[in-house]
Design a protein around this nucleic acid. Structure first.
Lengths: 245, 245
DNA sequence: TATGGTCCTGTGCCATGCAAGAGCGTATGG
DNA sequence: CCATACGCTCTTGCATGGCACAGGACCATA
């Protein structure tokens, strides 16, 4: 395993992710896998194995895992190993509390901003979403829901809010959960209506109501999700690593 | 610079921070320095220099800086150097928006929880704060203000909220700013009164009002701060590094 | 059989060496 | 005098190797 340059090694098709530093690629790829759920939560994640797989040395892999730890996606148990974290029941509750908080605030902020480009995109999103619901295209609707929420956050025009929101959603692996939520009968239609109501209030510049309705929407979404979760798979409550200050 | 073990090297008094891994010590110490403001914002942090100062190799220093980057405290410019970040005017606004959001939510959540131990601590905190204001002890009052807000967050009983809040306050270097805010004439007394009002509403379990008043308090604090800031030291607007997803 | 100690293997942690990019001073040509 | 290009130095990025510790398997013993 020498110079990655002189030994390309992945002759296999690797269309994307060629740019940037080595560890940036590793971080992005690992994050993608974890969020997508490709990695079993209990069998992890050896620096050496990952290094060999990516054709790099252990150093960038190690730094990548360290960053993913601070993002809350993996847990590094010293001298033992690195494992993907699965949020406990309680953490899921906490994460949804935060989701409700941030998305509600985003709705309020967007309402205060007046007509910005994100508004147009949201309107277009809802038109497409209506069509998807109409033809019962659940997969497409899930994508549009994600886009709706992302547009809302982007429209808040607060980069800090956006950054924290992204970390939150990654920890929740929300892109997986949303399908569970939408599998509840009638949930898609109701969700679509709630989205419409929120956007209406935003257009009316009624920030207070927009926030309130948005928060109710998040709670409804959470209920639908929990109702659809398979069992009470209660993850172990890891000790919270104090981060000092 | 060999085995740290075989070459103790720090015969000099190093009373604290002996436990934990090397990089944990480096992270904690660097974070402390940055927040305390010991480091000039433009002087580069050289891995090598820090490694020598701490008596360790570059590797743990490097990983520590990487973590501090994800916390938003430093910026690593590839192949150039590492620098402590100073939030731009806009970022300060955004951070205060988030602070208002999180502390308001914490007040609401705490109000909903009923009588928990943090309530007692808050009451004791306010008694001490009254005394500090009475004798015009601004230094002690600043500490108590910080404790008040920390207790509020802790009382919300949401570890995710606490974690995000901590990152936020570190980015703001709030422990420095608070002194500026309190240097405004009459601000300490007013701040103390606002704290009392918030706790009253919490005791009445009036979550809505507690959140509202708390948010107003944060805004007032922000105004007092901005009024006391020296000049319009507008930091360079760094390009936001996209974190992908 | 149950139990205690010991060794072995795997892991992350740290030190170090090499190479490439960025920035800057300087020399050189106009 | 000015502009440009060269090269030097300093920086981080990555690779590699040694080390210490955790955890479990194994064996000896009661």
């Amino acid at each position: 395993m020498n110079r990655a340059q002189s030994e390309p090694k992945w002759g296999s098709p690797r269309p994307e992710a060629g740019r940037g530093s080595v560890q940036a690629r590793v971080i992005a790829e690992m994050r993608r896998r974890i969020i997508k759920g490709d990695i079993e939560p209990e069998t992890p994640l050896s620096e050496l194995a990952l290094a060999e797989e990516f054709g790099v040395s252990r150093t960038p892999v190690r730094e990548a895992l360290k960053q993913l730890q601070t993002e809350g996606l993996v847990e590094i148990r010293p001298r033992v190993g690195t494992f993907v974290t699965t949020p406990s029941r309680r953490e899921i509750t906490e994460l949804f509390e935060m989701k409700e908080l941030l998305e509600g605030a985003a709705a309020r902020l967007l309402a205060q901003r007046g007509r910005v480009p994100e508004i147009d995109l949201l309107e277009r999103n809802l038109r497409e979403a209506d069509a998807a619901v109409e033809r019962d295209d659940r997969g497409r609707y899930a994508e549009l829901v994600q886009e709706f929420h992302d547009l809302l956050i982007a429209g808040a025009d607060n980069s800090k809010l956006g950054a924290h929101y992204r970390i939150l959603m990654n920890q929740l692996a929300y892109s997986r959960l949303i399908n569970t939520s939408l599998s509840q009968p009638g949930r898609a239609l109701q969700s679509d209506r709630e989205h419409h109501r929120v956007l209406e209030l935003i257009l009316e510049k009624d920030g207070d109501s927009a926030e309130r309705v948005m928060r109710e929407h998040v709670r409804a979404s959470r209920s639908a999700l929990l109702a659809g979760l398979p069992v009470n798979r209660d993850s172990q409550a890891r000790p919270v690593r104090s981060q000092d200050g």
